[in-house]
Amino acid sequence: MSDMLQIEVKVNGAQRLIDVAVHHTLLDVLRDDLELTGTKECCVVGECGACTVLVDGRAMNSCLMLAVEVDGSEVTTVEGLATDGRLSPLQEAFLDAGAAQCGFCISGQLMAAHALLSRIPHPTVEEVNEGLAGNLCRCAGYEQITQAVLMAAEGGDR
């Protein structure tokens, strides 16, 4: 038992060894220690989804997990969506549909949408709304966000 622990995680494809305080959340460690600030902090109670990341491919609220829990896992954040500076089709679709207003919720929306499309490549509107129900957007660009996800799905392979 300890209050600091070294963990090994693959973050956006790169293997990392990080010393973390055991009581720090994954969100804290991503933002403060790894300086991956694309993942956002809002409610810190699992309600808004701004902090959504993928852990071993599944969407999770990084504000509700301790960083030590991802030891040995693979974490993808919004910074990991584009490859070599090229936006993913999902990101492109968000731009085309005008889905990002203030943009603060968008990292989380993208991660939740990404997870949704890997499970259901061609979702219905209802499936998109259900899949993104854990991501609040106060700019309430829900219509455009949904449209973006559907456009990305139509575009086929992401």
Partner: peptide, 9 residues
């Protein structure tokens, strides 16, 4: 139970 993110945990 919560959102997709919550149900994954």
């Amino acid at each position: 139970v919560g959102s997709v993110q919550i149900r994954n945990r």
